[in-house]
Design a protein around this nucleic acid. Structure first.
Lengths: 117, 117
DNA sequence: ATTTTATAACTAATTAGTTAGTTTTATAAC
DNA sequence: GTTATAAAACTAACTAATTAGTTATAAAAT
């Protein structure tokens, strides 16, 4: 699986949210300043070539949908972050941010208890 | 703090490891295929402009060192990941990867116990 | 003092990514 | 059937990033 560029990621985030969409609909979901219709259209065709999206054709128009899930993509990029900055260990990441008090220990404790059941 | 491009990040990773270095030394630390000396030199000057590195001059030659720590940078990019993919919550990230069994629950429990002391 | 060497600085060339105009084509409206 | 419309496909222009050659300059060697 390849990495997404900034512009590609932006489109994917929208598509992951709406699950399927025509270019026009993607554009509608985007924040100002909106890119040109053709810009979105170009990027989605790049995403097609990268095998991140596919489409169903309705006559001439295409309804696009993700073929890489948000979950799979976030798994990949999280792992890449952990490998580059936390020695490949999620435990290191947790302990790093727990020390910085960015993670609540009680809450974490609850999460573990729930998962252990 | 700005984001690093791929090439910039590569140089920073080396510099963070060796703590201070002349261009020649950075190059020596890099894996094949090694870039040209001038490539490294250019990138480090970009990093200078971005305020990621500074240097001490020895006559004409510069010994570069990071002015943004690895810790600060990894904090930033981790937060950016969490905000984009985990709804801004580290707890979400932990629970996501715990469910995928990428994080060992016992180990996590130990970490929490240690930190609570 | 002149030549050599090593380095930073500058600059040019290339490649990757982004943006949007133009063209083509299928469908819809008349 | 011709014209209008809307979308994808193609393409060009632009911007950002990468790579490395050329130049200038300071220090070292002779």
């Amino acid at each position: 699986m390849q990495e997404l560029t900034k512009a590609e990621e932006q489109i994917m985030q929208v598509l992951w949210t709406v699950e399927k969409a025509f270019v026009k609909e993607l554009l509608a979901e985007m924040n100002e300043p909106k890119p040109a219709y053709n810009t979105v259209s170009t990027i989605i065709r790049i995403l097609e070539k990268k095998d991140f999206v596919s489409f169903t054709a309705f006559g001439k128009t295409h309804q696009y949908y993700p073929i890489v899930s948000r979950e799979d993509y976030k798994t990949q990029i999280s792992k890449s972050l952990v490998s580059k900055y936390f020695d490949g260990s999620f435990e290191n990441l947790v302990s790093f941010f727990a020390k910085k008090e960015e993670i609540d220990l009680e809450e974490l404790d609850d999460i573990i208890k729930t998962l252990k059941k």
